[in-house]
Design a binder for these strands. Structure first.
Lengths: 220, 220
DNA sequence: GATAGTTTCATACAACTGTTTGAATAGCAA
DNA sequence: TTGCTATTCAAACAGTTGTATGAAACTATC
């Protein structure tokens, strides 16, 4: 009812500021100044600062999750209930990587906000992230169907490593660029996706073709 | 000079509190209460809160880096200037994983502090992390010597993925345990190290020499 | 034991935070 | 119009934060 103009102006301004400067040093006063609204408007429309952040993060992450599941479902349907592991992994890490990497100037505010959220985790966001497990379980299920011979433990480790590579690459993209003196092209998103998927696939299928995985031959 | 008692009491208390409750909600007053010293002592001994955090983080991370380089140097000397890639990777991720994983009750305060530092990155720590590139370059060099046929790009990606798996596993160890319903045993640190090293090795050697005997094992 | 330098302490400060309040305004139904 | 509700606004509130101050207590040297 009425005009959500103020409401959405706050959301937009907050997302922009958080994306640019991080959660740590953006105050409500910064946000309302950027949005050209009154200070009390945030509490009026969202209840509290934390709820504003939560709403921002929830709406963005359900969008990503929906995209992931869409790709996963399409792949499994095409394969009659069983999708190739590469395609599953691509559905898992592709949407996030595509959203968060790529040429900076064409990177959306939403993407930059999500990068921030992954770098400096703040209480309201942490609470939400904890509920993401159910979502990941769906991928674990698909992976199990795709690789029925693998143990659950290996599946979970593969899932963990796939997410690790994707998220770390996003978080530390700047450092990787600097470290490699630009040789690693983080703007070529599809190449990054292919690399992550490829390594994760190896992690999940190693020891199947050749001898048993060398996972246990160390130490002790 | 004189008694550093106060100084080290502050350091110990701060590390403990940050490890337990995070940087976000530990104030100077909490720290001095835990250390049983006066509020002004922090500014007297360290200059500011940020400098206290920085000192804590620097001393811990140079300890880790020293351990890493020690293992790396030993490996390269044993191999006459060229170490097997598995051993290099083990030197890279082993110290961190060993420090940050393992049974919680025997996990050191230092380790738990470093986990915090990797989860919620705070300005003074971020500044220091940026200077870590030189350290990583040494590992990139060793990896290049070990795998002279690989391109620089592949080396850097392999390095990036190895760090990704190690750090993400530390950061999200709780979530992985929950997701896998305890099936992934994060307390078996050497197994985790072996898994990370194994996958990173595959990432770095895939498509090159198929008959790669994982010959030498790591010493420790 | 007086002196000079260091360290502690209680206290105050100044700035900033998210939130609340209550009056003013706008929008709209009757 | 008259009411009624929804929204905006300026101002204040209450709390917390890191830091500064200046006197007191210590410590070691002569």
């Amino acid at each position: 009812m009425a005009s959500d103009h103020t409401r959405s102006a706050i959301l937009a301004a907050a997302e922009r500021l958080y994306a640019d400067r991080g959660f740590g040093d953006v105050t409500l006063r910064d946000i309302v100044a950027e949005a050209n609204v009154n200070l009390a408007a945030v509490n009026y429309h969202f209840g509290s600062k934390d709820e504003l952040i939560a709403e921002l993060f929830v709406s963005r992450s359900i969008a990503t999750n929906r995209e992931r599941l869409r790709e996963l479902k399409a792949a499994e349907e095409e394969g009659g209930g069983r999708a190739p592991i590469e395609v599953i992994l691509r559905a898992l890490v592709g949407p996030t990587l595509r959203g968060c990497l790529g040429p900076e100037n064409q990177r959306s505010t939403a993407a930059r906000f999500m990068i921030r959220a992954s770098i400096e985790s703040v209480p309201p966001i942490r609470r939400i992230k904890n509920r993401e497990i159910d979502h990941l379980r769906k991928f674990a299920g698909a992976m199990r169907r795709s690789l029925p011979d693998r143990s659950d433990v290996d599946i979970y480790w593969g899932l963990n490593f796939a997410l690790a590579m994707a998220h770390h690459t996003i978080r530390e993209s700047e450092r990787l660029t600097k470290l490699s003196e630009g040789k690693c092209d983080l703007d070529d998103v599809e190449d990054v996706v292919a690399r992550v998927v490829s390594v994760a696939t190896m992690a999940l299928t190693a020891g199947k073709v050749e001898a048993k995985a060398p996972a246990r031959l160390a130490a002790r």
